[in-house]
Each structure stands twice: as structure tokens, then as C-alpha cells.
Design a protein around this nucleic acid. Sequence first.
DNA 1: TGATAGATTTGGAACGTTCCACAGCGCGTA
DNA 2: TACGCGCTGTGGAACGTTCCAAATCTATCA
Lengths: 345, 345
Amino acid sequence: MVSKRARGKATITDVALRAGVSKSLVSLVMRGERHVSAKRREAVQAAAAALGYRPNAMARGLVERRTRTLGVMVSDLHNPFFADVVEGIQDQARRSGYRVLIDTANNLASQQDEAIETLLQFRVDGLILAGLLAESRLIVEASQELPVVLVGRSARAPSLDSVTNDDWAGAVAAVRHCASLGHRRISHVDGGQGAGADARRRGYEDAMRVLRLRKHAVVVPGSYSEEGGHSGALLLLERRPRPTALFAANDVAAIGALNAIEERGLRVPDDVSLVGYDNTSLAALRHISLTTVHQPRLEMGQLAVSTLFERLEEGRTRPRRAVLSPSLVVRGTTAPPSLDGKGNP
Amino acid sequence: MVSKRARGKATITDVALRAGVSKSLVSLVMRGERHVSAKRREAVQAAAAALGYRPNAMARGLVERRTRTLGVMVSDLHNPFFADVVEGIQDQARRSGYRVLIDTANNLASQQDEAIETLLQFRVDGLILAGLLAESRLIVEASQELPVVLVGRSARAPSLDSVTNDDWAGAVAAVRHCASLGHRRISHVDGGQGAGADARRRGYEDAMRVLRLRKHAVVVPGSYSEEGGHSGALLLLERRPRPTALFAANDVAAIGALNAIEERGLRVPDDVSLVGYDNTSLAALRHISLTTVHQPRLEMGQLAVSTLFERLEEGRTRPRRAVLSPSLVVRGTTAPPSLDGKGNP
DNA sequence: TGATAGATTTGGAACGTTCCACAGCGCGTA
DNA sequence: TACGCGCTGTGGAACGTTCCAAATCTATCA
């Protein structure tokens, strides 16, 4: 005597048995094929509902050799930047009948490869790497097997696609903005190995050079985190003469810098101007009102998905490197430097 | 003539062929079984490396009938609360040799069931639902098949476990704090259908009653989002006499309320005191410095995983409802109400 | 009435693993 | 010398689907 199966663990065969048809027919119905008689279709649907049948994505994926699933590796869920990127990804994927599976690396390079490996073992059809910390060997190898697109970091290997904003130009805009307000001692807390941090650093340096402020250029090491911005800013605020403007590698780091500045008893923007990068929801808070560089996050997520589909469904094989334009958003954390008695900042 | 397989799509059979052993032996080596001669083990490992072999989690899962994977549904990636919960989940899962797959609902009940369905189709071994918007039928049915634990919302169905903080007590503490500062017109912007919002609302109402402030109690509808807090606060600030303290359903909503208060030209805490809930990183920002109620987020994530494992590996079948204690964190957004000429707030 | 052309339906192979029962092998012991 | 035992290693079934070729129906038409 076989006991009734646990609800929901029913297989296609159970449904077939109950509906009095072959498992092939059940398969047809479940996939919504036409050319199935109404009578049988209803019988199958009734049986499936009664048994709580749920198709097994693994068995499906095994034989179909694809999962209609996109894998997304997010380096750091704490950064609100990625919440929007993921939202864009979900939007676009859903529109195309794909689903999305996310894994995260807690901002650690070691966990990053682990997360990617998990996604690969589940044989996702495409991989989106948001805020990649390092372009590891695993990633390049993976791109021989399936489309891989980087969001936020520009790809080096030719088999990788990428969607980025022009970090260099964004950084230049940030520096130019400060300079145009009259700042000369503009410093930069960089983003370490973070995605795009390198280009932002170069943009900062190039802009300082072009503006003939090279001798005032100072870069201290930081990271895409509050802690990174905090410690970097503390270093800078030690310097004499003190910088009058700080360009942080991203908004989260800028918040850390903001805290550091206040801890030192200084005011923003009266004593120190501050610029971030990303224009996350944080920056827009009235209480923070951070001058920053906007990246079209939602679009970037959507674009990542369509870039993937170009390879998946349209057979593109040449790399695509989409670079969107950033734009400066001026808010309350920047102002002209206050002058000392001699008219110097 | 068979062309060389694409790197990485190699199967266990390819590895077996190249190493000159049976696929069973390859399987043993890949799973790290002992009782395999060193010679063969090395041969297999070399072959696997050369072919870029990666085990297929779907094929594995199919025959093993488990995936060593936990599914996590996060209602809203924009809420930093969940970043910490997920971090705790990842920690604990990794420690037990499980991996984690995440899906998100963009704060929409409709997408919530979709996300869960995806996870179920991939036959995750257990399900963690963080910030559930509504306890749908799907969820209750799913809990007959696999362990399901809710984080942030207390379960109703007996087959569900949950990890929550005592939202009622947290809300009471928030109200008492305001009252002890001298506030009487304390209003609440609620969290709508959000996880725990109901208990927070009841806590607010009960505290107001006990404090004999029932006639001052006002609840306006909101949600766990900036927008919800913003619109709710605007409603409250219209009222005459105006409330002197606002208790928002969570930190994100409190930020929205903060914006609304400032838009109305009022100052916090001079004109209006404000309390949030969750003690997210947002609240801790010096610039915001929000008085709020702390929930142990990391712990809650970890506890969710161990709760799952008790069912998965220790055979527990009775529901477990863990309730952690919240604690009030007093920061800069609360102060005694300013008095008018007659000594009234 | 008998074909015949569609329209439906079906059985069985295949997908890439793990599991299990069993086969070899080498060695110590009676 | 023969036996038995502990290691190693192997073939084939099974997991739950989809796919494909072939079988079966059902009208329709001459």
C-alpha cells in the first residue's frame, strides 16, 4: 500500500496517472502548448492542482540544457546603488520571460568567486556581475561557456561585455565643479579595488593636472564603504594646509567622510566641501543633500540584460562595451571655500 | 570527428574518459570520498582541471533529491535592514556547508509569490522569507514540502517558523520614550501591510492608552518606504494642533518623514521629534542621527538558518517562534517639546 | 464506405549525476 | 595452498523532465 505522496512533491507522472493520460501530454499542457484537446487539458490542470504539482526546474534544465534564468552576483547588498541595478535587471528579465537568481559576496573577493560558482553550477543561462571586485580567472573562463556582463566595471578580457558609466568623465566633472567654486586643495579618497574606482582616480588626477592644480592633488586609499570613506577623510583632514574639498569614491564612502568631517568639528560645506559618486537615494536625502555624480542605475541594469540577450538570442559574439554618461548633481555639500584674512582659502 | 567540447561544458563522463576510469570513480573523487587510491585521484583531478569540469548542480540535485541550497526571498532590497539579515543568513549557511540563492519582490506582493515560486522550482532545501508582505496560500502550501521560516513577520500557519523581534514592545518603548520627554501629541505613521507593522501599530495604540494619551493617538496609513513615511508625515503635519512627536513604522519611512518635516519648514527635534524602527545604518549616520528601535539583524538572519536546520537535520516538526528583544536607541531626533507661552506644548 | 490528411497523443531515449550491489585484487592466516 | 576479508573500482538503475518519431483519432471528401 503506497501512502499518498506528500503534497507538492508530485511528479509529472503522478499527474499523468491521475488525469489518465501520458506524461508527455502533461508536459505539453504544463508548457501551454496548443494542439491539446480542451477535455484533456482541463483534466490535466485539475489533476495538477489537486496534487499541488510544481515542475522541477532541475529536471527541466537538465534536458532542455537551459534554465531561462539569469544569475546576478552583487558584490555588496549594503550599497543602495545595487538595489536599483538589480531592480532594472529584474524588470527587463521578467519582460523577456526570464527569472533571476541573486547571490552576493559581502564585499569580499573570496566570496565573490564562491557566489559565481554557485550560479554556474545551477547552469544559469547568463551571468551579470554587479560591482565586481576583481576580474578573476574563474570569470574569464566562465565567459567561454555563457554570456557574462559586468556592471560598473569595464571588462578587460575580450569575451566579457560590460555596462558602465564613464567614471573618468564623472570624476572630471566632480573636480571641475569644485574648482569652479574656487577650490584648489581638492583631495580624493579613492575606492581601492572597487568597480570603476581606478577610472575615477585617474579622472581626478587628470582633471587636477589640466586645471593646473597638480601640486594640490592628494589621493588617499579608501574603499566603497562607509569605513573606507571615514578613514580616508580622517587622513586628509590631518594635512596642513587642510584640503577645502573632498571627492569621495562613491556616496557610501562620502557618508563616511561626512561623519569624519563632523567628528573633527568641521562643517560641510562651510569648512569642507564634499562630493560623492552614484547619486544613490542616500545622497538625495534632504538631511544629507550630497553633491554627487549621477549614474543611471535602473537603465544600467536593464541594459545589462539586453546585452546578455544579444548574445543569448541574437548570436552576437563580439564584445559590447556600453558606456553611459554620468551627470553632476549639485546639492548642498559644495560651496565656495571660505577665505582667510588674506583672501586665500 | 568530434570537435573538442567547449571548455567547461564537460560532463563527468568526459572526465572519466580522459582519466581512464569509470564515471563512478570520478563522482567519488569530486565528492572527496576517501578509499580512492592516490594515483587515480590525481588522474581524475588532472583531467577535471584540464577540461574545466564543473559539477552540474541540477543533475546532482535531481538524484540526491536535495540541493544543499537555501532560498531567500527578500521583499525589498532597498531597505538596508535586509542587507544585514542576508549577511547573517549567508554567514550561518556557509558555516554549515549550504549555499544561498536570493530572489526579491521589489516590495510588490505580486512579485513575491513569483520569487518564491522560482526558488521552489529549483528545489531549495529550505526557504527564508524576509520581510514578507503577505502570508499567501502558496507559502502555507510550500511549508508542507520544505521548512519555511519567516523573518520579521510572525507566522500564522502552524507549519511556519518565524524569527521576529517583539514589535509590540519596541513600539511601546518608542512611545514611552517620547512621553517621558513630555510629548503628548504623539502620532504614528504605520507600515501598512509590512512585516511587523501591525504589531507596531498595536504597540503604539496600547502604549498611548496606558499612558492615558488615547485622545491624542492618531495613526495615518504609510508603508515601509520613504514615500510612505513622507506622505503619512505630510498628513500628520496638516493637523491642528500639530503633533509634537512622530513615530514612523521603520527607519526608511522615518527618513521620508524627515524630508516631509523639513519641507514644511519645521525642524527636528525642535519642532517635531521623530522616532524610527530597525536601527539601520541609515539611522546611525551622524547627519541623520535618528532615535530608533534596534533589532539584532545579523542574529536574526543567523537564527533563521539554525531554525531551518533544526527541521532539516534534527527532525523538529513543532513550530518555532523566536522573538528577540528590541531596544531603544536614543539619538538626536528626539527632545522635549518646545512650549508655547502658556507652558503647553 | 474507404481513404486521407490533419490533429492529438504516446512511448522511450536522453540529460548528468548519485547510489548500490557486486566484482577484482592483494594479503594475512590456517 | 586456499580462503576470506578489506579495499578499490565499476556498471547500470534512477531522479523528473523534454523531445522526437511514431501511433492513434477524427473528420472530410470522393
